[in-house]
Design a protein around this nucleic acid. Sequence first.
DNA 1: TCAAAAGTGTTTTAAGTACACCCATGC
DNA 2: GCATGGGTGTACTTAAAACACTTTTGA
Lengths: 279, 279
Amino acid sequence: MCYIDTKTMKMEYTYKYPHAAITADCVIYGFDGERLKILLVERGVEPCKGMWALPGGFMKIDETIEETAKRELSEETGLRNVFMTQFKVFSKVDRDPRERVVTVVFMALVRPSDYMLVAGDDASNALWFEERFLPPLAFDHEEIIAETHRYLEELIRLKPVAFELLNKTFSLGELQRVYEEITGKNYDRRNFQRKAVQSGLLTPVVSKSECRGMECDCDVVCESVGSRYSAKRPKPGRKPNRLFTFLKKNSGVDGKKFEGESRNDSEESDASIKDLFDF
Amino acid sequence: MCYIDTKTMKMEYTYKYPHAAITADCVIYGFDGERLKILLVERGVEPCKGMWALPGGFMKIDETIEETAKRELSEETGLRNVFMTQFKVFSKVDRDPRERVVTVVFMALVRPSDYMLVAGDDASNALWFEERFLPPLAFDHEEIIAETHRYLEELIRLKPVAFELLNKTFSLGELQRVYEEITGKNYDRRNFQRKAVQSGLLTPVVSKSECRGMECDCDVVCESVGSRYSAKRPKPGRKPNRLFTFLKKNSGVDGKKFEGESRNDSEESDASIKDLFDF
DNA sequence: TCAAAAGTGTTTTAAGTACACCCATGC
DNA sequence: GCATGGGTGTACTTAAAACACTTTTGA
């Protein structure tokens, strides 16, 4: 199957039937407190040189497609250990002018803390764009993003993945803004908060100072309220009083369709997830 | 990229980098009135010759992966125009001993009327198996089926796809058995029926004889009640009185993640779908 | 006539929805 | 002091869940 080209002395790979190339592309969402953003990279080579595109690249012959997605994400944006889940295959025959390329699209969700790392890394050609004002994109990436957004919109109603767009601790207002930004709807603040708390998926986080001397039965890392709001929030506004954290941890690529779910959960827990996120 | 081998006089396809092969495999569900079944084919060639496997095959270079799935389904089982939706990519490095093969798994749902066609076609090596008693399967197909079942279980709660496992007209009892078979749970018959009817997704079908002389505002094909139950039902039991049909038509492969949904529907309609199928 | 399946309705309980007031902060 | 954002509670409406009896049909 593989030979050395006697002229160029390079390896060649030969098959009886034509083979398409396989790539993994990543639709990477971030949330800056106000707007949903997408991380794009500028193409340095033809085709579509100079255009913006989804981070991604060719699958190596000895890695799974999930490993490809993870590797390309790391190589092109520096991001690691973010939530990532397989979405869908795009396989139009003419979607890449070079050769037949079938791409497996992954969706990644990035926390603001990681978000800042990417934005500040000027060694990278990756840049965050507001999802509503994207530049012209290479290949069929506009279509991919449109479909991925619909998928994200469905997913946050069913699985607790919206937390992956927030820091480990967050206010309920921040959570609500994520939902509103993704779905394009507005929710009643009081109903949203009640449902979020009643879901049982959140635990209040008490600041270190408040922790002392009071009954503190939370098993999560306590964190100073003040410190979080020193330099991160784009619009400081008013300091929120109540911070929460998400109970389950779900990060990294694992190839499951729905990352945020463990099938061993009780039925009650699964129902509460659904009810919480379907406003 | 493609040359003629001077020894064998056959075409060869050469690439600078190794390319994996791409296949489409179909997990095809059927429902015989009692049990959920899966359609398998017996492998006639190595590897895994003689074992049972999911219908599927290699993508041609000039077809989308959806077209591959559709073509293989037709070639290997004779089925056409069934509900089919893309599920997930499986890409373990060693999942096929011949070469590196990445497979895109599709899920298909087959109506009993089509079901009978396949079962009676002895020119085909396809056979229906009860999902709970499958034979040993080739490659990683057992793992694929396990994951696809979980996907189906989630999908029927969210989208009205269970109808695709029933004939155009069906009783509410049949619908309930589909849900119970897939989810493994039992539902209260009265609550199930009320929710199903209230969802607005079903229309009662009146038999031809009853149609005459009475107010018949249904726009669906009227069908004799008696004829449907002549030879099809495995356990005749008691003849149901009320038959229904599903309002929307969703068949064929189209590549959307969720086949049964049109994004232009009103929010109200979408909510009712969700509520109906989450028992 | 008996067993099995299908038709029907009510009550209780939980959740969704709509809505108003007060408080703290920063400008 | 005023606009903004955040905290809290209640009444109303709707849907879910639990539950029993009757009727039809085939064996």
